[in-house]
Design a binder for these strands. Structure first.
Lengths: 217, 217, 217, 217
DNA sequence: TATGAATGAGACTTCATTCAT
DNA sequence: GATGAATGAAGTCTCATTCAT
C-alpha cells in the first residue's frame, strides 16, 4: 500500500523514445506520405503500443516536426557546410569545396531518396512552419557561398564584376539536375551524376574566374 | 410506343461544369493542399451542392487529375515551347528564345504561385501517375532544348565538345533559382528576376559559344 | 403565343407507362434485389429518362408494389386456381387437378426463378403490407383446397375422419420440395420434379382415400 | 532498450464484444432487415460507440455473417440432429425421432420468429455465400434422414420400393406448414402445431410402412 | 409530357486522440 | 510507464427525389 518509491524515471528515456518513434516515422512517412500513415503503423514499427506514442508526442503533427528535425540533421551531417565557411585561398580551392558539397548532396540523396521526398514534399504540403525552416536552410547555404565569393573578390581571385548573392543562388541551382534525377528516378548511376557535376563546375569556373583582360585592369 | 423525346441534354454542360469545378478546386487545392480540401468546400466554391460534383467527377482524385491537366495547360500556354522547336540561326537567336522562355515562366509563376505549389507539390504527393506525367513534361523541355543545341553544333555555332543532353539539363536548371524564389517568397520583384536571368544567360553563353581557339581548329 | 390546345392526353398512356416501368423493374429487382437497384437503372431499362418514372410512381417503394402486383398476377395466371374451385367428382379427379397445379407451379417457377426470389425475399424484406398480401394468397390456395376436400367428404370420396383445413395445409406443403429446388438450384430438371410430384401425389392419395375398412362402416 | 510490457490485452474481450455486437445486430436485423439497419443503431443497442464496432468487425457485411453463424448455431442446438443419426430400430422409433425434431423446430421458431426471418430472408437477400451455407444445412438434414430411411429398408421396416432421397425431401417438407405458420402468424398456438405434426406423421407412416401385401412377398 | 440537372440526407468507414487499467 | 480499448468527428460517396426547361 505504501510502496517504496522506485528509482526516479530515467531522464534519458524520453529522449530515447522520441528518437525511436521519430526514426520509425521517418521511414514510414517517406514511404507512404504523412497523411496515409497512421499512428498505429508508426507505433508498431517502433515496437510500441500506439497509446505510448502519445506519452512522447502531443499530436501527430508533432511527430512530423520531429521527423523533419531529424531529416535536416542528417542532411546537414551529410553535406558538411563547415568547409565552405573556412576562408578559401583560391578559386580552385573554393570550387573544390563547392564541388565536394555538390557531390555529397546528391550522393547522399541517392542513398536516401525518402529524405528528399520528406523534406521537399511532405514538409511543404503539411505545414507552413516547416516550409519556413526549409527556406532558412536554403538561405543559409546560399549566403555561406555568397560570403565565400565575396571573400574571393576581396582576395582578387573571383571576378569583381559579379554580384555574389545572385551568383551564389545560381551556382546552387547547378546541383539541381542531379537532385531532379534523384526525385524522379529511383536509381541515379554515379557516373551520370559525375557528368552533371563536371558540367556544373566548368560553368562555375568560367563564370567566376578572373579573365586575363580583367587582370590587366 | 416510343416515348416522346424530351429536351436533349444541354450540350456542353458537362464541359462547363467540369471547368467550373476544376477552377474552384484549383484555387482551394493550391491554398490548403489536396488532402485538407473537402468535396464540400470545392462544391461551395463552385456554387454547387456537393452531390453535383459527383455528377461530373467519379472521385475526388479525378478532380485532382483535372486540376493537374488544367494547370499544365496554363503552364504550357504561358511558356510557349514552340519557338524553341523552330531551328535557330545563331547562338544569340537560341539564347534569346531560351531567355524569353526562362523569363516567361517565372513571371507567370510569380503571378500564379499557386500553380507551382499544385504542380510540384500536390501532384507529386498525391498521385504517382501525375508524377510520371510531370516527369514527361520536364523531359520534353530538356530534350527540346537538347535538340536545339545539337542543331547548333551541326551549324557550327555551338561548341562541339559539349554533350547536348547534359547541358540541356544543366541549362534548364539555371531557371531554377527564380523558381525557388517563387516557391518561397510570395512576391518576387521583377528586377531581381531579371538579374537572375541575366546571370543564367551569361553562364549559358560562356558555356556554349565557340571559343576563338576552337574556331581556328 | 396562343397555341391551340393539343389533343387531350391519351387516357391509356399512364397505364402503358406504368406497365413499361413495372416490367423493367421486375427484371432488375429480381436480378439484383430491391435495395441494390436504382431508379436510374429502371428508367434506362424502360427506355425512359429517370425523371419520367416519377410521373407515374410517387416513390421507389411504389414501384415495388406494382412489381409485386405484376408478379402475383403472373403467378395466378400460371397456376390457374379455377379448376380447383369447380366441384370435383372423385378423388382421382381432385388429385389430378391438384397435381396439375402442383406441376404447373414449379414448372413456371423453374422458367422464371426471379419471380420466386421477388415474391419470397424482396416482398418480405421490404414491406410488411406485401407480406400480408402474400399470406392472403397462400390462404386462398389453402382454403380453396380445403373446400374441395370438404366437398369430397360430403360426396363420400374423401375419408371422413380428416380435418380438411389441416390436410389442405399439409398437402400444399408437398409442393415445397420442388419449390426449394427452384430456389436453390438454378436449373431443376423436369424429370426430378416429376418424381417429387409423384411422391406427393402418392402420399396424398394414401392419406385421403376412403379405406375399405371405413367403407364398410 | 525494450520498453516495459504494459498490461497484456484483455484476453477474450474480442470474443465478448463480437458476441455482444452480434446479439444486438441479430435483434435489429430481424426487426427491420439488414439494409435498413445502420451501424449506429447496432452500436447503440450494444451500448457502444459506433467506432467501436469497427474494432471487432471490418465491415457491416461481416456482422451479418456473424449473425448468421449465431443463428445457425442456435438453430442446430434447438433441433438436435444427432438422434436422427443413431440407427433406428423400427419405423415407430424413426418416426418418433423425426416427429420430435419436427416438433422442436417450429416450437423453437415460434419462440424466436426473428430467427426464421433472419435465416430465410435476410441471409438469402444479402449474400450469396450465406445462401450456399443455408443450402448445405438443408442438404444435411435431408441426407441424414435419407440415410435413416435406407437403413430402415435394409432392416426391413421401411417399404423397399421407395426412393429414400426423394422421400426424405418430401418428408422434410411436411414440417413446412408449421414453418409457414410461424412466418406468417406472430403466434402459433401449440395445439394447432400438434395437429399439423400429427397429420405429417400419419402421412409419413402410411407412406413408409411395409404393407401387409408386401410383407408376404 | 419528358427530361436530366441539381440536391442533400445519410450511409459506411477511418483514425487521431483520450483514458482506465 | 505502457498499453490497447473506446470514441466520435469528419470524410467520401450514393441515390431518391424535386423541378426548371
Amino acid at each position: 500500500m505504501a510502496p517504496g518509491r522506485g528509482r526516479p524515471p530515467q531522464p534519458g528515456i524520453a529522449q530515447a523514445r522520441r528518437a525511436q518513434i521519430t526514426e520509425a516515422a521517418y521511414a514510414i512517412f517517406a514511404a507512404q506520405g504523412y497523411e496515409d500513415t497512421t499512428i498505429e503503423e508508426i507505433a508498431r514499427a517502433a515496437g510500441l503500443g500506439h497509446g505510448t506514442v502519445y506519452r512522447y508526442f502531443n499530436a501527430k503533427a508533432e511527430i512530423l516536426h520531429s521527423v523533419f528535425d531529424y531529416s535536416i540533421e542528417r542532411l546537414m551531417t551529410a553535406i558538411e557546410l563547415e568547409p565552405l565557411c573556412a576562408p578559401a585561398e583560391s578559386l580552385d580551392d573554393l570550387l573544390d569545396r563547392v564541388q565536394r558539397m555538390c557531390k555529397d548532396l546528391p550522393e547522399f540523396l541517392t542513398r536516401e531518396p525518402e529524405l528528399v521526398k520528406l523534406i521537399m514534399v511532405e514538409s511543404t504540403a503539411a505545414d507552413d512552419e516547416l516550409l519556413l525552416r526549409l527556406r532558412g536552410l536554403a538561405d543559409l547555404m546560399v549566403s555561406t557561398l555568397a560570403r565565400a565569393l565575396a571573400d574571393g573578390q576581396a582576395a582578387g581571385w573571383v571576378r569583381a564584376s559579379i554580384d555574389p548573392q545572385v551568383y551564389a543562388h545560381t551556382l546552387m541551382s547547378l546541383s539541381v539536375p542531379g537532385l531532379v534525377h534523384v526525385l524522379h528516378e529511383r536509381q541515379t548511376r554515379p557516373a551520370e551524376l559525375t557528368r552533371f557535376l563536371a558540367v556544373g563546375a566548368a560553368l562555375a569556373r568560367s563564370a567566376l574566374e578572373v579573365r586575363p583582360a580583367e587582370k590587366q585592369l
